[in-house]
């Protein structure tokens, strides 16, 4: 396993070194490049956690299957800009299966759905945004385990905007000058309609289907994750 970390770290180090040597002008650093470095580092960090964890074959298979479902539900809605049921499914999965699985489902859904829709500069940010949606849903479940339908609906609704804002942030830092509140608002206003459709879609999907799917996934989790207890001396007699 040390081999895996070594490679991952070497890859990360090489990536960051090249970025830093080549890209950063000491007098005026490129904000777009800095944000890309930060996003790539965050993704690497989460992937490293996943690689370090003891993911069983069942967990890997379940993560892959849910990532496929999250990507597949995106495809029928590509004709309605902004509407992405993937977010709500990632949130439900993160809540039911935990932060690590939530991140992996979200980022994988972005990556594989874009293989069919076309990879672009948005892929990295979608991977990060959906991954973070899964992680935050896992955290929410730990902090407030009994959060009701309304609370989770609101949470999903907010992620519709957060998703758009994370992606917009890079767009603003890379293509706009000067970087001030006015231009930031201009960028947010440009995507407001799409973000609102996304947020409303998330809220409606979660309110109608969220709890049902959550129960389904929890049942599946109970079935899959078996804890092997050591035999007590009494039971061997």
């Amino acid at each position: 396993m040390g081999f895996v970390y070594k490679r991952l770290l070497m890859g990360a180090a090489v990536l960051l070194t090249i970025f830093l040597i080549a890209g950063i002008n000491i007098k005026a650093p490129s904000p777009g490049l800095i944000l890309i470095i930060a996003a790539a580092a965050a993704l690497l960090f989460f992937y490293l956690i996943y690689e370090r964890g003891k993911a069983s074959s069942k967990e890997i298979a379940l993560t892959a299957v849910l990532a496929v479902a999250a990507a597949a539900v995106r495809l029928p809605f590509v004709f309605i800009p902004g509407l992405q049921p993937t977010t709500f499914l990632v949130i439900v999965s993160g809540r039911a299966l935990g932060c690590r699985a939530g991140f992996m489902i979200g980022s994988t859904a972005a990556l594989i759905s874009n293989i069919f829709l076309g990879q672009g500069p948005w892929t990295l940010w979608q991977m990060l945004s959906w991954g973070l949606a899964g992680v935050s849903a896992g955290i929410i479940d730990r902090v407030t385990p009994g959060m009701g339908r309304v609370g989770m609906t609101l949470f999903s609704f907010l992620w519709g905007y957060l998703f758009g804002w994370i992606i917009n942030l890079w767009h603003w830092a890379t293509f706009v000058n000067p970087l001030n509140l006015k231009t930031l608002l201009g960028v947010f206003v440009a995507s407001f309609l799409f973000d609102t459709v996304h947020a409303l879609g998330n809220g409606i999907f979660y309110y109608l289907f969220g709890d049902g799917i959550y129960k389904m996934l929890q049942r599946c989790r109970r079935r899959f994750f078996v804890e092997v207890l050591p035999l007590s001396p009494d039971s061997t007699r």
Partner: peptide, 25 residues
């Protein structure tokens, strides 16, 4: 997959399963 085996396995499995899932839908 050379460096991130589990993550690459998840993505590869997902990639292979997607056409089947779309057909199942």
């Amino acid at each position: 997959s050379l460096s991130a085996s589990k993550s690459a396995l998840v993505v590869s499995l997902a990639l292979r399963l997607l056409p089947g899932t779309a057909r199942r839908l």
